Amino acid sequence: MRVLVAGATGVIGRSLVPLLGAVGHEVVGLSRSVAGAEQVCRVGAAAVVADALDAEAVARAVREAAPDAVVNMLTAIPEEINPRKLAEQFALTNRLRVEGTRNLIEAARAVGGARIISQGLAYGYQPDAGAADEDAPLWHSRTPKQFVSVLAALTELERATVAADGVVLRFGHLYGPGSIYAADGSFARQVRAGKVPLVGGGHAVFSFTHADDAASAVVAALDRTEVSGALNIVDDSPAALREWLPRYAEILGAPAPKSAPAALARLAVGGWGVAFMNELRGADNARARLRLNWRPRFTSWAEGFVTELDADRAAAA
């Protein structure tokens, strides 16, 4: 199958492009810069250059690539996120998720209706008890104001993808090379500096996804052409912040996180920062296991963090 990957140089794309080639797909990476295209070519794929927000450029690139499938991993997430400025920092990503997705779908339709696979999020569910399946409502009630525009863009991405009979892979908190949780990532730096406390008891539940597992889910979705709709692509072990953050700090050799009351933390990180640390709901991956026959390599964040951070330390030695 000939596969166009939009966002080929991102955290997932860097795992996905070589994996697609290894299992026999012809891969074309879409990049908005020549430097990005060169990066794609260095791992053995072809490349086309286009700004995803330029509909005419995307149409030309898709015609040139002539794909059987389009994998939409478009984001422009900053290396370090300020939760008080989430809406501002995600403005470009929101446009990519709405306008970029529309441009890719319209271009794919014009060349014969290539299969669409898009990147969603598995931590936008309405806070509640237990791990959310895909039928659980998204966070449309009492949504932190900084997250409203982000969720609106994700909702439109999902609507457009599903309307095109595509698949939305709702990834959890991504870790692996190039992510904020990598040894050289922004979150790791903040934890080492003692700047990530357990807010309000640390009740937020996180479902993690290693970049390699995200990539293998895309491959599985390409193989299962009959599958459409949204699927949670997360590990088997949702964990509260109070459980995983101290272990993450320990693996990094960082100081144990301190506790902070939610009211005080709100002054520093705003409503979204408090919600992120104290209200998020984890996700269930049973439907993806059944419909895609997909299994995460890292079934638990604990195993994945140890493996990934040990590899980072070995590479730095």
Rank of each mutant, 00 (worst) to 15 (best):
N72S: 13
A66E: 11
E64P: 01
G44E: 06
A37R: 03
D51H: 06
R63M: 12
A55N: 08
A65D: 00
A37L: 05
V70H: 11
A59E: 14
V70Y: 11
A55S: 15
A66C: 07
V58S: 09
A52F: 07
L74S: 02
G44N: 09
D54A: 07
A46N: 03
E64L: 12
G44S: 11
D68K: 09
A66W: 04
A45F: 01
A59Q: 15
A50I: 11
A47P: 01
A46G: 08
A47W: 01
C41W: 00
Q39W: 02
C41L: 11
V49G: 06
V40C: 00
V48F: 02
R60P: 03
E56N: 13
A55E: 15
V58N: 00
C41Q: 15
Q39A: 14
L74R: 07
A59I: 03
A55M: 06
Q39N: 08
E38L: 15
A69W: 06
V62R: 08
C41V: 14
R42Y: 00
E64M: 12
V71W: 04
A66D: 13
A57V: 03
V43C: 10
L74C: 13
L53N: 00
G44H: 02
D54P: 00
P67L: 04
R63Q: 15
V40H: 03
P67N: 03
L53M: 13
A46F: 07
V43P: 04
P67T: 05
M73Y: 01
E56T: 14
D54K: 08
A46T: 05
E64W: 03
R63I: 10
A59G: 14
A50M: 09
V49F: 05
R60A: 10
V70R: 08
L53R: 02
L74A: 13
A52C: 09
R60I: 01
D51F: 06
G36R: 08
D51S: 11
R60H: 13
A65M: 03
E56S: 15
G36T: 10
D68S: 14
D68L: 03
D51L: 05
P67H: 08
A65E: 11
A65Y: 08
E38S: 12
D51E: 14
P67F: 09
V43Y: 01
A59K: 13
D68P: 00
A52Y: 01
R60C: 08
A52V: 00
G36S: 12
A37P: 08
V43Q: 10
L74W: 02
E38M: 12
A45Q: 04
A37C: 09
M73G: 00
A55H: 12
V49K: 01
